[in-house]
Amino acid sequence: DYYKILGIPSGANEDEIKKAYRKMALKYHPDKNKEPNAEEKFKEIAEAYDVLSDPKKRGLYD
């Protein structure tokens, strides 16, 4: 669930989505986080943001 990945409610607005994305992206960026699964988690976060930040894609997802 993209909302769960970003840690936001399904009714989140654009600003909340952007803030959550930035926070999670910094936390899991492969250059900052050396955990083995950090890169995979970072890709999931980027995919979630891509879908939820685009009103058309978000509409299809919801």
Rank of each mutant, 00 (worst) to 15 (best):
A38F: 04
E16R: 05
P36C: 15
V51R: 04
K41M: 09
A20L: 00
S53P: 01
K18P: 02
F42Q: 14
Y21A: 08
G59T: 09
L6G: 00
K4G: 11
K19S: 12
G59V: 08
K57T: 02
L52Y: 00
L60G: 12
E35V: 10
M24S: 09
A25V: 15
D62C: 13
I17T: 03
K34H: 04
S53T: 11
A25Q: 15
I17F: 00
S10M: 13
D62Q: 07
I45D: 01
Y3N: 03
R22E: 15
E35G: 12
P30I: 11
G59K: 07
A46Q: 02
L26S: 13
D54L: 01
P30K: 12
E47T: 05
E44P: 11
P30E: 08
A48Q: 01
S53N: 05
Y28W: 12
A20V: 05
K57Y: 04
G7K: 05
A38N: 14
A38Q: 11
E44W: 08
N33C: 11
Y49P: 01
K27Q: 15
L6S: 02
E35I: 08
Y28N: 04
D31Q: 11
E14N: 02
A48I: 01
H29G: 13
G11L: 04
Y21L: 01
A25M: 10
A25Y: 10
K43I: 12
V51L: 09
Y49E: 02
E16G: 03
K18T: 14
K57L: 02
Y61N: 15
N33D: 15
L52G: 01
P36H: 10
E39V: 12
K34Y: 06
N13A: 05
D1K: 10
A25D: 06
P36L: 11
P9V: 07
K43V: 13
K19H: 07
Y49A: 07
R22I: 10
E40N: 15
A20H: 06
L52R: 00
L6R: 00
A25G: 07
Y61A: 09
Y28P: 01
S53Y: 02
A38D: 14
N33Q: 11
A38P: 06
I17S: 01
P55K: 03
K41D: 13
Y61V: 14
